[in-house]
Design a protein around this nucleic acid. Structure first.
Lengths: 168, 168
DNA sequence: ATATAGTTTCAATAATTATTGAAAATTCAA
DNA sequence: TTGAATTTTCAATAATTATTGAAACTATAT
């Protein structure tokens, strides 16, 4: 397979993969393109390579910057802005975990705290089932939260080494 | 907060949560409803409680069954089908991991194997960047795959105990 | 200051995805 | 069998989400 075709496939499946995880296709494709580009790219480079409009490109680049996955690079003497993605995949994964934890897991845990205090007689089967479900989700959620916290701070080598020992 | 309101909030946020992870709102809401229902429900129960059509209910129940999160229950003497969700949250999490691993992680790893064999001179900067990126994603992906395999087989108590020691 | 290159915004539109509801198929009891 | 109850399918429609492109804005060079 030629490089050009392999790149195309990579970008396209990264995009499809993203959509399965609640990330829009274009955002995932821009990320993919930057991951496999040796040098920083301009908006126009991305528009051309991915066949997308200027507005779409711009919005999704900024979203990737918000996620901490892409950064602006200023090349000396150049007027245009360039963009580059973190290439260290372990760092990328940690960054995504960090963001999703903050955006989704933490608010969910806060809600569960509130819902656990529902009024009513625990001898009522419906009340009991509700409270039990909320409690058990909360318990697992809190463990996940702590575990992910530690992962975010861990080195890849440590992580992989430990996992190998643990799960051998 | 009254039970009725708490249930409503739980269902609604479980639905919103799902949409952030590529799961459709209705499917997540049906799952939520079953999780907090003491007894099995019929399609009509769900239609009424969630205000959704028969077709939508039916399709999403079957999808939940495909995911291994819900099962049909036949009550003696009853003509109608009843449905119930696994209440053990650790089992639910393991089942979701198992399915997503099979549906998304494994095909991605297969693709990466193929893409790694791209033609071209490794001294070419573009080729090198592409291959390096593919390799590093593959490496981390394989570790994740193995780790998740072990998780799927683990007991919750074992998992939590180990994680606490590990990450204390 | 003005012109030009570059970036951002956002209303309009397109594309995608979810939902409905009625018809078809299935199941089961009489 | 027949027919009522129940489940399933799927074309049509609605709702949601993504994308465009042109205008507004900003930064920089002359």
């Amino acid at each position: 397979m030629k490089l050009i075709e392999a790149r195309q496939q990579f970008i396209s499946s990264w995009g499809a993969f993203g959509t399965h995880w609640g990330i829009n296709r274009t955002m995932a494709q821009i990320h993919a393109l930057l991951l496999i580009s040796a040098d920083p790219l301009t908006q126009d480079d991305m528009m051309e390579q991915l066949n997308i409009s200027r507005g779409n490109t711009n919005m999704n680049i900024r979203e990737l910057i918000n996620w901490g996955l892409v950064e602006r690079v200023l090349l000396p003497g150049e007027r245009k802005e360039y963009f580059t993605a973190e290439k260290d995949i372990w760092k990328v994964v940690k960054q995504i975990i960090k963001e999703r934890k903050k955006r989704e897991l933490e608010p969910m845990l806060q809600l569960l705290d509130k819902l656990e205090e529902v009024e009513g007689d625990k001898r009522d089967k419906q009340v009991k089932t509700f409270v039990d479900t909320v409690r058990s989700i909360k318990k697992l959620g809190r463990h996940a939260d702590k575990t992910l916290d530690k992962m975010i701070r861990a080195e890849e080598s440590w992580f992989i080494g430990t996992m190998i020992k643990l799960f051998k």
